[in-house]
Amino acid sequence: MNAIEIINISKTYKSKTKTITALNNISLEIKEGELFGLIGPDGAGKSSLFRILATVLLPDVGSAKILNYDVIKNFKNIRKLIGYMPGRFSLYQDLSVEENLKFFATIFETTIEENYDLISDIYKQIEPFKNRRAGKLSGGMKQKLALSCALIHKPKILLLDEPTTGVDPVSRKEFWEILKKLKSQGITILVSTPYMDEANLCDRIALIQNGKILDVDLPENIVNKFDKDIFSVASDNMFLLLNDLRNYSHTLSCFAFGDSHHLVIERNKADENLLIQYLSRHKNLSVKKIEPTIEDCFMQMLQSEN
């Protein structure tokens, strides 16, 4: 069975001066037990989709089902089945850590003790501060508390809207470890992120931009579909090198990627030796043909969209 089914959903926001299309005819199926990533930058429409699935926003067109319950007709059933962590911290700032958790347990008619096993890994890390007000917590601790609150009623499906945005790389790695554990306990997870490197940690991903889904697939399939050649190029003067590569006659695009530049060229169009010759004024030049990353693929899709 599909845990989540989204069929032709569109959503626009209108103000006096303009209309913004947040979601443009989106369809998706997410299987039970899947760790599914919605990958895209701010403003792509991710949060609107989460709000519709969490039954707190109505779509203009289309429908969605969660474990066969309709998000409009059966919203009360759905709310018991999902744990939703919104992108913006939305716990009670003036309640303590423990009071927040107790509050969420109580409204779902359960107790912290009853489901402590599920949250213990995460909650243990913030328990030393259980009497601190939520508003006084640091970013990483707020994130852990929010996840604990979303889990306390033992949901079947977790909706996590950008849980790792603005979080440092160490905490991000820890957070994904937690998600892996939750998945192994059978919880379906829909998680959104603007960090492309997190795509590989998901079972399947959807790439989203401007309210449209660019592609849905296994991360490795998205990489395999890339139909251009890509070279990793480095030299002593990376700034100059970037300009030179952008001026090269076969270049489709060239962007900085950490310690090298990624040069994209039509398949089999470029002779590596000619490229090296063209760059002969550079010292310590290195040119390597490489496999693309998800980020390369996403950038290529963005460019062909425009």
Binding site: P41, A256, F298
Partner: peptide, 9 residues
């Protein structure tokens, strides 16, 4: 934080 990979570059 949060912008698409092309805009970031």
């Amino acid at each position: 934080s949060g912008v698409d990979p092309i805009t970031r570059r």
